[in-house]
């Protein structure tokens, strides 16, 4: 499931994420996607569409790694 999340985010940000770069659960999100207001809105929207979960911007800001984000999605899913 976390691979699904990573792939979705890769697809959403082709301009900033190098396709050849290896991204895993421990990768820092902000290292690959700057948390501008637009980028955060894109993340929140694609997460809602794919996982049916509404995350608040403040919760997104707390995430360091992709694993952190995945855990938040899981916590809202249950």
């Amino acid at each position: 499931m976390i691979n699904k999340l990573i792939n979705i985010i890769k697809e959403e940000f082709p301009e900033v994420i190098d396709k050849t770069k290896v991204i895993d659960q421990n990768t820092s999100i902000q290292d690959v996607i700057p948390f501008s207001s637009l980028n955060m809105a894109i993340l929140l929207t694609c997460i809602e569409l794919e996982f049916d979960v509404v995350i608040q911007p403040i919760e997104l800001r707390k995430c360091n790694t992709f694993e952190d984000l995945y855990q938040i999605i899981l916590s809202f899913s249950t």
């Binding site: 207001s37 955060m40 809105a41 929140l44 929207t45 809602e48 509404v54 608040q56 911007p57 403040i58």
Partner: peptide, 11 residues
């Protein structure tokens, strides 16, 4: 506030 606007759309 983009976050609140998006919440409004979803909710």
């Amino acid at each position: 506030n983009g976050g609140l606007i998006f919440n409004y759309i979803t909710q």
